[in-house]
Design a protein around this nucleic acid. Structure first.
Length: 380
DNA sequence: GTAGGGTTAG
């Protein structure tokens, strides 16, 4: 017994003293350096946010906050947003509402709620505008229980009347929770209050039903939308397109392009990607290529998903010229893709003895400023 | 401030 203990104890000590010790030290150093770096960054952005130039660009706040949130440092998000109280813009409801929204995107609902509650002390008016930000913060933080309370208790208490955006957010919350069987009661409720559902309401519903595999219910939503004279837009068609494709009703999906055309709705890359993706899954090279060409002919730009879908499929099928062209476009446009996507093409080119083409691609990728984390392998 | 598809993390 005691020798077993000694052996285990010895093993534990050995482990502690050697490999893990080194790893732990290294990891903590990197984490500490990173944290230090982020702390410097927050100071820099706090100063910057005092300038009118910074304040005039809404997306800068989002970029800053996202950086801290993705580094898992909510305290820095808070530090940055809390600093905004010292800047005069906080008295502007638009700005404060945006900060509430940002807290939501960082999944920091409690902070969003605190800021909302503090608004009167900050001399900031509080209307349905900021209430809607708080509602969106609930959905983005996935704090669904709290959305009903805000709707049923907080809003009446403050004398704020929910508007269409509020109801659309509530509809989305029901969909996100998977409460599809009761979501129509929300639509009923908004209509009773004299607020007509719009195309966003229905796109939320269409997406939820088609995506969860309830195709027949998705179709009912479509009919309901049309019966209310709501004109479907490209997002509505894309939701249905996705439904048809996942039901394996490819001919009908393709028929949607004509229908869209007749209604004057321009398909976008997401519309084409749905069909291209299906043909790749079905290993139909000709049709996959055909729909890619159609996408381009119709003044539509391929996006990251188009390339990520097609490049491996084309490489597997020996279509290296086309795959190579796509890789060059990815690099030219600085799209964020995994290096493995290029490796498929490089490996295939080497196998085909097109070493020079493979070299060109590797060189291009390595010298590309947009894609910094390059680890492409090129033998020889 | 409300609705997307899909291998997002140097």
């Amino acid at each position: 017994m005691s020798s077993l203990y000694r052996r285990l104890h010895g093993l534990f000590l050995t482990n502690k003293r050697y490999k893990p010790a080194i790893r732990v030290t290294k990891a903590t150093t990197t984490a500490a350096t990173n944290e230090q770096h982020l702390r410097k960054m927050v100071e820099k952005y706090k100063k910057l946010s005092e300038t009118p130039k910074f304040r005039s660009h809404r997306d800068r706040y989002m970029n800053v906050v996202r950086r801290f949130a993705s580094a898992n440092m909510p305290s820095l998000v808070h530090e940055f947003l809390e600093h905004q109280k010292k800047v005069d813009v906080i008295t502007d409801e638009e700005f404060t509402a945006h900060f509430i929204f940002l807290y939501g995107r960082c999944k920091m609902f409690d902070h969003a709620r605190t800021l909302f509650d503090e608004m009167p002390q900050l001399n900031c008016p509080r209307t349905v505008r900021s209430l809607n930000s708080l509602l969106s913060a609930c959905v983005n933080s996935r704090e669904f229980q709290k959305i009903e309370e805000i709707f049923r208790e907080l809003a009446p208490k403050l004398g704020i009347e929910p508007d269409r955006v509020s109801y659309n957010t509530l509809v989305n919350a029901f969909c996100e929770m998977g409460a599809l069987d009761s979501v129509l009661s929300v639509v009923d409720e908004m209509e009773k209050k004299g607020i007509q559902p719009d195309v966003i309401t229905f796109n939320t519903l269409l997406h939820a039903f088609y995506w969860s595999g309830r195709f027949a219910d998705g179709e009912k939503m479509w009919d309901l939308m049309e019966s209310k004279d709501i004109v479907p837009n490209v997002r509505s068609y894309n939701a249905r397109m996705r439904g048809l494709v996942s039901e394996d009703r490819l001919q009908e999906a393709i028929g949607m392009f004509d229908e869209m055309k007749s209604k004057g709705v321009q398909p976008d890359s997401i519309t084409y990607n749905a069909v291209i993706r299906k043909f790749c899954q079905d290993k139909n090279l000709e049709e996959a290529k055909n729909w890619y060409h159609k996408l381009r002919e119709n003044d539509c730009d391929p996006d990251r998903v188009t390339y990520v879908t097609l490049v491996p499929f084309l490489s597997e099928n020996g279509e290296f010229d086309m795959a190579l062209e796509m890789c060059k476009e990815i690099l030219k446009r600085g799209l964020n893709v995994q290096p493995t996507l290029f490796q498929h093409v490089v490996d295939g080119l080497i196998e085909e003895s097109r070493i020079e083409d493979a070299r060109v691609l590797v060189k291009l990728a390595r010298s590309n400023h947009h894609v910094r984390y390059y680890k492409l392998k090129m033998p020889g």
